[in-house]
Amino acid sequence: MSKAFTRETDADGDDDDVGGNAPALPVGTRNYMTPQGYARLRAELLMLLDDERPKIVETVHWAAKNGDRSENGDYLYGKKRLREIDRRVRFLTKRLEIAEVTDPSVHHGGDQVFFGATVTYVEDDGTERTVTIKGIDEAQSQLGEVSWVSPIARTLLRSRVGDVLKLETPAGTKEVEVLSVDYPAP
């Protein structure tokens, strides 16, 4: 059957994979989040509910009054955008409800790696890297942030400055040495 004859529904896609291909939470784990990450996701949720969704609803309402909906681009795009917004709102609501906000500044001055730490390490080939361990929903790799469930974060957690650790990668096992651990100031 041609794709043209299939019906698009609100159930298309998975709510756990909405908005940036967010990974599902590992079974039996908590949704750790920094206060800043929680505030950013909450602000996005409020913006969607208070600003963007009402504008789209108004556009769809106006377009629906114009007659033939099957060829009305404003109506069709608006309905699609409403589904996307509603899906993202459901996702954010679920994730914020189960979020466990953890303030990394309580470890300020410590040398052991916990959630929220910015860790500088060197690989066995001499490559030096710096990563910040954040929550699943807030980590942005382009900013050097990794999720606390990522392989590098799991390897680094609970280690101390000077520890040499074994990191399992698809290319084999690498040794990494922790050079420094920093936390935000309280």
Rank of each mutant, 00 (worst) to 15 (best):
A171Y: 04
G110Q: 15
D103L: 07
I56R: 02
T59D: 15
I136P: 01
G28C: 08
D137Q: 05
N21H: 12
W148P: 00
G28M: 14
R158G: 12
L45D: 02
K80C: 08
A99G: 01
V131I: 12
E58H: 11
Q142A: 07
L49M: 12
I136M: 13
G37I: 01
T34M: 01
S2F: 09
N21L: 14
I98R: 15
V146R: 07
L49A: 10
R83D: 04
G37Y: 01
T155Q: 01
V149A: 04
D137K: 04
S141L: 10
R129S: 13
G126A: 11
N66T: 12
A185L: 14
V89P: 04
L48Y: 03
D74Y: 07
G116V: 06
S150Q: 08
D86M: 08
A11D: 12
A117I: 10
V181E: 05
Q140W: 03
N31L: 15
E177G: 00
V178Y: 00
A99L: 02
G37Q: 00
L96D: 00
D182Y: 11
L96P: 00
F91N: 07
Y77E: 04
D51W: 07
P184A: 07
H107C: 10
A24R: 13
R7F: 11
G135E: 06
W62D: 13
S70A: 13
E175W: 00
D10A: 14
T102Y: 05
D12Y: 11
G73H: 12
E71R: 14
A63V: 01
G116T: 07
S159P: 02
A39Y: 03
I136T: 09
V164N: 03
R30I: 13
D16G: 10
D163G: 06
Q112H: 10
P104A: 08
E100G: 04
A153H: 03
R95H: 06
L46W: 12
D163H: 06
A117Y: 02
G135I: 06
Y32D: 10
M33V: 13
R88M: 11
F114M: 03
K55H: 07
V57P: 00
R90A: 11
V176P: 02
D163I: 13
D74T: 07
K79F: 01
L92S: 01
